[in-house]
Amino acid sequence: MPMEVAGAGESILRALSAFAALTGDCDARWVVGGSAGLALRGARLASAPRDLDIYADAAAAAALHERAAGWASDGPAWDETGSYRSLLSHYRYGGVTIELVGDFEVQVPGSRYRTEVDAFLYAHGDDWMPYDGARPIRLMPLGHELIFNLLRERRDRALEAARLIRLEPETHLPALQRLAARQSLSGDIRRELRRLTAAEPEEGADDGR
């Protein structure tokens, strides 16, 4: 079993702080997700984050691209890969790849999930306070991380998101329940959400099965 690591790493933190400063005068809302978002919460990951995932609505992604165009590796373009569809653009800062994901959607048999940053995710996320005292940076709600990783069958990430939710259920469970109600999720996924976030998960919930 790989060694678990914690923390996002200095290069990720520098890139995130720089992106926040660069877009600080922009009204577009965005949230940090993926492995970096989990690491900023103290998640136990098998490896340190290698890139930075920023989620926004499509219109906001276009506005953010204008601010970050000097770092761009490509321009915003719709991408459909396997089960995923999104407006993607990529940037480089200090050796870190920043992926800006607009209107992300994943569709698998029985379930369809799409991100709604302005309508839901931003308001229900959590603030991470940069070490330099700059303004707070918004993290994806843990409910998103749990749902998304169940849908893409990343059991390790799903279990870690569920563990963090169970540590503060009064903070994270209501948002998870409201988020799940907004999405088209299969009965199996909904049952797994309840099982993994129960106060005492059933046998097998944390064993990687």
Rank of each mutant, 00 (worst) to 15 (best):
R191I: 00
Y91W: 08
G34Q: 05
E80V: 15
S35K: 11
Y113M: 15
D206T: 13
G125Q: 08
P174N: 12
E10W: 02
N149L: 04
R112C: 11
F19N: 01
A158Y: 03
A180P: 09
R92Q: 13
T97E: 15
L146Q: 04
Y93A: 08
A63C: 09
L176N: 08
V5N: 01
E200F: 12
L179H: 03
E200H: 11
L179Q: 13
D156S: 13
E170Y: 10
D127Q: 12
A199P: 01
I189P: 07
G204I: 00
L185T: 04
P174M: 09
R157M: 11
E99T: 14
Y84N: 12
L150T: 05
G37H: 02
E105A: 15
E4K: 10
A77R: 15
E116H: 11
R178F: 05
D103S: 15
E116Y: 03
A162H: 06
P109G: 06
D79A: 13
L13E: 14
G33Q: 05
A161H: 02
P2S: 09
T115W: 07
E10N: 03
D127M: 01
A8T: 08
A48M: 13
G82Y: 02
H124K: 12
T171R: 15
S111F: 02
V5G: 01
E192Y: 00
L88A: 07
D132E: 08
L87S: 06
W71Y: 14
R194P: 00
S111I: 06
Y91R: 04
G75W: 01
L142H: 13
D206W: 13
W71A: 10
R154Y: 06
E153P: 00
R178H: 14
P76V: 09
Q183A: 09
A56T: 06
V108A: 05
E80C: 10
L40Y: 10
L185N: 02
P76Y: 00
A15Y: 02
M1H: 01
A20I: 03
L139H: 11
